[in-house]
Design a binder for these strands. Structure first.
Lengths: 137, 137
DNA sequence: GATAATTCCTCTAGTGACTAGAGCTACAAG
DNA sequence: CTTGTAGCTCTAGTCACTAGAGGAATTATC
């Protein structure tokens, strides 16, 4: 039996976050000691590692909830799980594209600034005048 | 004199967002009509376009506040403005790197799944077992 | 000039995924 | 038995808005 602190150390998930996941229904409410403290077992460890891993990949809580539900029905086809992952991949790629546009625009603005006074500062001027931008954003 | 709705249409910033920016001190409290409605002028339009542009580039509100303050002192050197932009560029690049790692990991997981049952689903298995991952994340 | 439709006002609360803190209790080590 | 650490619950804060309630002002139509 593990305390919440033990579970935290073993999974790298902070103690308040574990309690938060319980509240969100990602992990079942733990058994309690006589003094009302949470006590965990091996399968809680696995569940929490699963959640942490999914969060590290950027999945949000509703998606994780769905994956957990799916994982408890080994006989079902896995199309839904694949779809969740694929949708997330699409979202990640879209974010990358947006950020790359920002990156290029910022690079361009910064490289155009000669670094003297605010009056001539290209950073400030570019912000004031959208006409100095390339493309729309 | 423009109403807040006019200002909104001309800049593409939503009405409640304009009020929010006023509250945050990014734009000065507007003059009011007899009936207590906000009335704007040309320079408010420019200021709001500046803010919107900076937000589109992903700058946060404290950074924008600082840029506005700088823009009102044309004689100062523009090193601070350049630094704000450069710091932001660094942050954008870091985000891109993180997202690319996620992208590759998700691609790998998805491509390994044969799409049959949950039991064999590589998406679920990869989440359950960190050992199936490449690299750390 | 009356009425209707639209816009505006303020204020509060909600978003996501936590994080911080207050005030209190339980447990482990010496 | 005391002390220190870890645990408990509950509330509120983060960021940049967004949604909605309930009411007042303005504009358009008749």
């Amino acid at each position: 039996m593990l305390s919440i602190g033990d579970l935290s150390k073993r999974t790298g998930v902070k103690v308040p976050t574990i309690r938060y996941y319980e509240q969100m229904g990602l992990i079942e409410a733990a058994e309690r000691s006589e003094g009302n403290q949470r006590r965990y077992e091996r399968n809680d460890l696995e569940r929490l590692a699963f959640i942490r891993h999914a969060r590290d990949l950027g999945l949000d809580i509703p998606a994780i909830r769905e994956l957990i539900a799916l994982s408890q029905h080994p006989d079902l086809p896995c199309a839904n799980a694949d779809r969740i992952a694929a949708d997330h991949l699409t979202a990640v790629r879209e974010k990358i594209e947006k950020l790359k546009k920002l990156e290029h625009e910022l690079e361009r603005i910064i490289s155009h600034c000669d670094g003297h006074s605010i009056e001539d500062c290209y950073v400030i001027r570019a912000l004031s005048d959208h006409g100095l931008c390339e493309g729309e954003h």
